[in-house]
Design a protein around this nucleic acid. Structure first.
Lengths: 281, 281
DNA sequence: AAGCGCTTAGAATAAATGTTCCCACCGCTG
DNA sequence: CAGCGGTGGGAACATTTATTCTAAGCGCTT
């Protein structure tokens, strides 16, 4: 028996197919249809036995249900239910990479821009999903409470550090941008106390200087706010609070699109807090 | 043996646990850690064998990895990865509503971030529409042909200038970042010749210094590439080529999201040209 | 260089899961 | 009321999948 060709391949198509046949189904199968439509998560993740029990049917009924819809078996139908999870919660990292490394060779400049715009949008969506409110709030707590704020970022991360340094200063926070100018980095760092804050920005490949400064600070009890990429950053274990950003990437070139977006959000969020604080006094 | 008590129960906790132990893990387990953090979808849905193959490890290594983190086995850890899919799923639609309704679910800080993400996406879409291929190509012509490239941006534009300065240098272009350190700005500018290029970045409210430097350069016949906002920018009439970017803006606070995206596109576009040029010789 | 501990690969094993199949049931029709 | 087609239940089966285990490998120290 060859596999039916009318088996839906997308979740929405499956949803429609179930809804449509609901009337022509036998009672028990309709019971399953109802359960499937209202508990798609279970359909995607649980085992046949589990679903059968929760829906109050026999496991074999689920198989029959799947075959009625044109699938080979339950497993095949479950795969479609799972696409819903991955489609609505996409792994943006993969998508970004697919856009770029897998894509055709970028020919002219505007194609490059197109790619970075697409990758940037994905990175922003990814940021929306992965950055939790509590992390943000904890970051703002640190920024709000620190007597002095020291900002460090090297190479590609320096622009972010420069922006934060500039903007924090404009908000009236005492801010020092650790630029290591004239080889004064160590001296600048020694001045940091445990009531201050070190904001460390570093992405792969991580600047050794930044990591070492973080370690120094952490050893001295200085709170550290890390802005870094989530995957195995050496900053993360050293920082009290970490804001993880996976920025857009095309052909190995990383953008600062999403990182800058988060940075400005931090600034404005902090500004709001300071306004409130001032107003309450 | 009783089950370990330190096994994370939420995805974020698991994420943190993995990131934290990265240093103390053996090479193969670290390899898994990296894969797990960048492919949480696979970890949630695929089988041990599948994940092992994709990550390039043995199935048994995945079990060892799980046990290292305090789980009884892989299955138990996978359950945590699956919570991420189900937990974030219903929020997806709710979140947007929460944003518009101003619901109390989101803290102020994450609301700000949501706004900037939305505004950033809009700005990127806008950039896609407004920036023409010819402008980009002409900008690249300038960057490619210049003997020396001088980059200038102040205040909020400085991070962009810093990025361009850094990235152009990495591409092998002779680049000077006009930072005005030690009040040497005028002297630095006098060195610019008509075979060089001045890249001037400035947004409303336009830095007087930047505008003046542009004027100086234009008077001396130095080509100027302007990166600015389109509306009535004083840079535009002074620059031979202008790249106009309207960046995201929330309550008067401007982001650098789109500008950075364009900057990195310029860099990569230039890099491609240089590669071609090198290859053809 | 030998021995030790930790790590790893890969096959063997155990567990679970999906699937099949057969019989009982029910309502309908002749 | 007997026969029939469709439906459902549940145990048996086969397959997939997780897990364990042992021997080999590697890097250190002695």
């Amino acid at each position: 028996m060859e596999p039916d060709t009318d088996a839906p391949t997308s979740f929405t198509a499956l949803q429609a197919a179930i809804a449509q046949r609901q009337n022509s189904l036998s009672p028990r199968l309709r019971q399953i249809a109802e359960y499937a439509l209202s508990n798609p998560n279970d359909m995607a993740l649980e085992t046949v036995a589990q679903i059968a029990e929760r829906a109050g049917v026999q496991p074999s009924a689920l198989i029959r249900f799947s075959k009625t819809l044109g699938f080979d078996g339950f497993t095949e139908m479950q795969r479609v239910f799972r696409t819903r999870l991955t489609d609505n919660m996409p792994n943006y990292k993969e998508r970004i990479r697919a856009l770029t490394d897998g894509g055709p060779a970028l020919s002219d400049a505007s194609r490059v821009l197109e790619h970075f715009i697409d990758a940037g949008i994905n990175a922003l969506e990814h940021l929306r999903q992965e950055l939790t409110a509590t992390d943000l709030d904890r970051a703002l707590d640190l920024l709000e409470g620190a007597e002095h704020i020291y900002v460090m970022g090297q190479r590609r991360s320096f622009p972010v550090a420069a922006y934060l340094g500039y903007a924090l200063g404009r908000l009236g926070r005492r801010t020092v941008l650790l630029d290591g100018l004239g080889g004064m980095l160590r001296q600048q760092v020694q001045a940091i106390g445990d009531r201050d804050l070190l904001v460390a920005i570093s992405f792969k490949p991580y600047s050794e200087d930044t990591v070492e400064i973080c370690r120094l600070a952490a050893d001295n009890g200085v709170p550290v706010l890390g802005i870094t990429d989530g995957t195995l950053s050496p900053i993360m274990p050293l920082a009290g609070v970490t804001l993880a950003v996976e920025d857009a990437q095309v052909k190995g070139f990383r953008s600062l699109t999403a990182t800058m977006c988060m940075a400005v959000s931090l600034i404005v969020g902090l500004g709001q807090r300071l306004d409130k604080e001032k107003a309450s006094r």
